[in-house]
């Protein structure tokens, strides 16, 4: 389903990774590890089509991703370090205006239900600016509930600033995604293994 063929990328003179090869099919999960600056985020951005590698290719369903970019990008759900939320808008407004962009158009009820499930019912109508980092991350992660139509989930540090209950809730969502035939690639600094069945790729 997803093949990475001798991918290499160098930032200026230091080579981040070279001739990287791996492939993943439905239900696979992979955790990318490595010290800071080892190129984890760059690899995730290349895999999700945001960044072009120096050489090598990302192959999705047998077709090189860069060739039919819009097809490939539509099947990728990338979540970066930043939450991508507008501080002046409320959590509900943020989701309501962001999701149509990513191919989902939930009703207001579905959105507020998802926010309640994430334990945000108290703050969901208040501007995001006066939320804590953990709450903002949860709002951003609520997006995952509506990303079923995007098979390849690429999550960069999804667990940062989450408390224990939010971490376990997220693990449930990730497992559900894998069991439903999705593909998951993520990075995390959590020391314990949050998704045990995930294979591991180290960039150090």
């Amino acid at each position: 389903m997803l093949q990475i063929q001798n991918l290499s990328f160098a930032r200026g003179k230091n080579v981040l990774f070279e001739n990287l090869n791996f492939s993943m099919t439905e239900g696979d999960a992979m955790r990318v590890t490595g010290s800071n600056g080892s190129g984890k985020t760059t690899l995730l951005r290349i895999v999700s089509g945001l960044c072009r590698p120096d050489n090598g290719a990302v192959v999705w369903h047998g077709a090189v991703a860069q060739k039919n970019e819009s097809e490939f990008v539509r099947s990728v759900n990338f979540l970066g370090h930043d939450d991508g939320l507008k501080k002046q808008l409320t959590a509900t407004e943020n989701l309501k205006l962001m999701l149509p962009l990513l191919g989902a158009s939930p009703t207001d009820i579905e959105i507020s239900a998802a926010l309640d499930a994430a334990g945000l019912e108290a703050v969901k109508h208040k501007p995001v600016m006066n939320m804590s980092a953990g709450q903002k991350r949860r709002v951003a992660l609520t997006r995952l509930d509506f990303m079923r139509h995007r098979v390849l989930w690429v999550l960069d540090e999804p667990f940062t600033s989450l408390d224990v209950s939010a971490i376990s809730a997220l693990v449930v969502k990730l497992r559900a995604h894998i069991e439903s035939g999705g593909v998951l690639i993520f990075t995390t600094h959590q020391d314990f293994d949050v998704v045990p069945e995930a294979s591991s790729l180290s960039l150090d």
Binding site: V73, V76, G80, D82, G84, K87, M98, L101, L102
Partner: peptide, 18 residues
């Protein structure tokens, strides 16, 4: 700066229209 520019690229819709 707040990361929402990525949504434009990730949406798969033609970026020029967005």
């Amino acid at each position: 700066n707040d990361g929402s520019l990525e949504h434009l690229v990730l949406s798969g819709e033609p970026l020029t229209v967005l």
